[in-house]
């Protein structure tokens, strides 16, 4: 259903974007991941279609993320459903995405999904890479890095010595 253009506010856009998930991590929305940098509403163009024009600034987690195109299209399509006359999705690079941009809710959801979340590191990336990682299944810190690269650019592979299970961690970045 196309809603009235009058109802379109930045808040409504932000709320709607909670429905857009990263296809590689379906439990997280792009807002929870911290990928949405800005939502800007501009008045309808003179002589153009009714309804606001919306610009959404999105930043990639990793520069080569293959899901980025699909994510941009999903953002465009979701905002269009709100009745925007025109939607522009801009790829922005600065400030570069950091795993610290994730919300606390995102970390909790990742853990429940079986993916160890990255701890906040405040920009100190190297210590964060070597810090102990808790197993998302049993909570033990007796874990071991098996591969600094995993099934997606944002993941690395661990095993838990306590419960014996392998698991992935979302990389601190």
């Amino acid at each position: 259903m196309v809603r009235s253009a009058r109802a379109l506010t930045p808040e409504a856009v932000w709320t709607a974007l909670q429905d857009v998930a990263d296809p590689e991590i379906p439990v997280l929305s792009v807002v929870e991941l911290g990928m949405v940098r800005a939502v800007v509403l501009e008045p309808p163009a003179a002589g153009g279609a009714a309804g606001a024009r919306v610009r959404v600034d999105v930043t990639p987690t990793f520069a080569g993320c293959p899901a980025f195109h699909a994510i941009s299209e999903a953002v465009r399509s979701r905002v269009s459903e709100l009745g925007a006359a025109e939607v522009e999705v801009r790829r922005v690079l600065s400030p570069a995405w950091s795993s610290d941009d994730m919300t606390d809710t995102a970390r909790t959801k990742l853990r429940a999904f079986g993916l160890a979340p990255p701890d906040p590191h405040g920009g100190l990336l190297l210590p964060a890479l070597d810090a102990p990682v808790a197993c998302p299944r049993c909570g033990s810190f007796d874990t071991e890095l098996k591969n600094a690269f995993g099934s997606a650019l944002c993941r690395e592979i661990y095993t838990c010595r306590s419960c014996g299970e392998p698991f992935e961690r979302f990389k601190p970045l």
């Binding site: 520069a63 080569g64 993320c65 293959p66 591969n147 690269f149």
Partner: peptide, 18 residues
């Protein structure tokens, strides 16, 4: 493990080219 690692690195480098 190295197959996965190098595929990741390749993808990163192509991302940097972009």
């Amino acid at each position: 493990e190295e197959d996965i690692a190098l595929a990741n690195i390749a993808q990163d480098e192509i991302g940097h080219a972009l």
